[in-house]
Write a protein that binds this DNA or RNA. Structure first.
Lengths: 110, 110
DNA sequence: GATGAATATTGACGTCCATCGATGAATGGG
DNA sequence: CCCATTCATCGATGGACGTCAATATTCATC
């Protein structure tokens, strides 16, 4: 359920607040109330961001009594890495200086 | 100029249309008009997205006569990889099952 | 079951942003 | 010099999203 096209996870990372949350989680499991102390956002806002992070597959939530512990989900990040690798790896990066034409504009139709 | 905190580049990737553009660029340099043919967006919209991609440091634009050739910028993607690595690498991932307490709620002050 | 703490949900509000049509700027060819 | 092509900019518009206050829910304790 965290498949989609991968853009959801990138969009999750594309929010400064969420990126900082992930940095805080990088050192290990952290509960919501602790996150709330290190940030300058309201509790509903934090809850919203955590939901986004969990839905995007980057974070897992574990209920422990009244608290909820959040931790990074390595599989989610591996998927991101894979997407980036697929973009950069195959590369037929040769700019093809020779031809003065350009794109495939000419002779594209049937 | 592509520094910031990295969230800009992730936000750029977090748009399905832009992600597809990057996939098209993965096979090599492509000019705007060719991109326009493979997408289902208007020309102003493409121009807007290309500006976002260039500003985020993921793409470079080279003018060749009337056309503009776009290509991936490896340095931008390396920065993304580095950010992801920093999030997952250090990990003190031990959940610490033992203590029934939870977070650091108790005894936080000096 | 009443209380208190941590978290989730709801509803509203303001801003950002993707999108488009219309128009302008740059470039090269007849 | 005029024209066609490619790309950039502008203004408007509609939807997505981050944010909060208020409220509900969950859970342990007494």
């Amino acid at each position: 359920m965290d498949k989609q096209d991968g853009s959801a996870a990138f969009r999750a990372l594309g929010e400064p607040v969420r990126l900082r949350i992930l940095q805080l989680l990088a050192s290990g499991e952290v509960c919501g109330c602790d996150l709330l102390e290190d940030l300058t956002i309201s509790q509903p806002t934090l809850s919203h961001h955590m939901k986004v992070l969990v839905d995007s597959g980057l974070v897992v939530a574990r209920r422990r009594a009244v608290w909820v512990h959040y931790a990074l989900r390595s599989e989610g990040f591996e998927a991101l890495r894979r997407t980036i690798d697929e973009l950069t790896a195959p590369g037929a990066k040769a700019p093809e200086e020779a031809s003065g034409s350009c794109c495939s504009r000419k002779g594209r139709g049937t």
